[in-house]
């Protein structure tokens, strides 16, 4: 049997060595062993009575599924609270949660008297920002919910530039969230029941198209939009394609075109080999065949065939 070349074998045979002096390459640091946990309590950490705490009024999360809360309560019961919640002190010796509403609810569920908390100084503005920015990057809060949360705190800021800065967003980004405001009433109602039907990008696209639509066509576009949202919810339409879908459907309704919701692609085979594709999309029909499969004469014949077919069958 063949044998592999090994570093150890080469060292043994004297071909190479392991201890060449000098000439060093950059080192890769090894993983540090974890140091023993520092178990001193930080100075601003206290046990606060659960009853004295109230939730953050700017909390964008409105739904706390019972099952998740139970799971969290079970895990806290088993291993304890890993991270204390963060609160601020109000004037009447009560406390308000800055971060950790789920943990607080789980504590209440467990029937505990007090919860480990870190007290920080925090004004209304910071409070609102913290509640949102803690949630903006999380995958489980939809863009529409973030939009609603942003609307809630908007009045705390003199203008949108300051608001965007406080949220750590660029302004374009903020406006994308606010695009939900421009959605027609029926869509807002749909969003209230299912906030994740469309993303902020889709909302932006819809807004752009509605703005560009002439007032005569507006009713027609909204009708198409209604159908399109149904298709998106059913998973039959890709929401990134909404703009082209709306425009194409409008064209179809006005002067005829190809009625199809999204791209359909049919591969073309030559025996076993994949040589091209035939594609139908709302914008038209495309066929592509790679070079070397049909001759030039056949290409011309094909072109003639297509022209004749269109002459005979065009609507």
């Amino acid at each position: 049997m063949k044998k592999s070349i090994k570093v150890s074998g080469l060292v043994e045979s004297g071909a190479i060595s392991r201890d060449r002096p000098g000439e060093t390459l950059p080192k890769f640091e090894k993983r540090q062993q974890f140091s023993v946990e520092d178990d001193r309590q930080p100075e601003n950490q206290f046990l606060i009575s659960v009853e004295k705490i109230s939730p953050n009024p700017y909390q964008p999360r409105t739904v706390f599924p019972a099952k998740e809360m139970e799971e969290l309560a079970v895990s806290i019961n088993e291993i304890g609270l890993i991270q204390p919640i963060t609160v601020r002190m109000l004037e009447d010796a009560r406390f308000q949660i800055v971060a950790g509403e789920r943990r607080w609810r789980a504590y209440k569920l467990l029937g505990k008297d007090s919860i480990p908390s870190t007290i920080i100084d925090c004004n209304d503005e910071d409070m609102a920002i913290m509640a949102i920015s803690e949630n903006v990057d999380r995958t489980d809060l939809s863009d529409y919910e973030i939009c609603k949360a942003i609307r809630k705190i908007e009045t705390l800021f003199p203008n949108r530039t300051r608001l965007a800065k406080a949220l750590g967003m660029i302004r374009e980004h903020l406006y994308r969230y606010l695009a939900f405001e421009a959605m027609p009433t029926f869509l807002i109602e749909r969003l209230d029941t299912n906030p994740s039907i469309i993303s902020k990008f889709t909302a932006g696209e819809i807004k752009r198209i509605l703005n560009a639509t002439e007032s005569d066509d507006l009713e027609m576009v909204e009708g198409i939009l209604k159908d399109a949202i149904d298709l998106i919810e059913a998973g039959q339409l890709d929401q990134t394609k909404i703009a082209s879908h709306l425009l194409a459907s409008l064209k179809t309704k006005k002067n005829g075109g190809i009625a199809c919701a999204s791209k359909e692609i049919f591969p073309i085979h030559n025996g076993k080999n994949h040589v091209g594709f035939f594609q139908i999309s709302p914008n038209g029909v495309t066929a592509k065949i790679i070079a070397g499969v049909i001759s030039r004469e056949n290409c011309i014949a094909l072109q003639k065939l297509v022209s004749d077919f269109i002459n005979e069958n065009s609507t």
Binding site: I5, K6, V7, I16, D19, L25, K30
Partner: peptide, 30 residues
Amino acid sequence: GYHPSYSSCKDALTTLASNYPDQLSDIVIP
């Protein structure tokens, strides 16, 4: 890319083996 008749290969391998005794795989691909 180890080739026994190129001394530059042996040279480079010596450098690697001296610098990364713990990180270099014992198996060398020829």
